[in-house]
Amino acid sequence: MNISGILVVVPPARIEDATRELNALPGVEVHHTEPSTGRIVVVQEAETVEQEIAALSRIKALSGVMLAEMVYHVFDETPPEWDATPAEMAAS
């Protein structure tokens, strides 16, 4: 699992819409905003770097996004829980 902190910049007038659109993306959470400058800090959680890059591209593709770049990377190597309840059992 990779967790990255990403800075997104949009025109200040778009900050609310952008926050909503960002939160709707899978694995993306808006944590901090600065309305006066249009800067938004999001955290992106992804299984793989592939997904992480795809997600960054999605963020860049949102309307009005002027900048979206990674700032922080954590290599979260929490060992898998072998004895956790498998998803297919939890569903039943």
Binding site: M1, I3, S4, G5, I6, L7, E29, H31, H32, T33, E34, R39, V41, V42, V43, E45, V71, Y72, V74, D76, T78, E81, A84
Partner: peptide
């Protein structure tokens, strides 16, 4: 347990990101 640890880590990453680029935080 795992979920809360992850959430905690994410809050930390968000705050550290904000601090790195100068977005004010609480």
């Amino acid at each position: 347990m795992e979920l809360s640890r992850r959430n905690f880590l994410k809050s930390g990453v968000a705050a550290a990101t904000a601090m790195a680029v100068g977005v004010p935080i609480s």
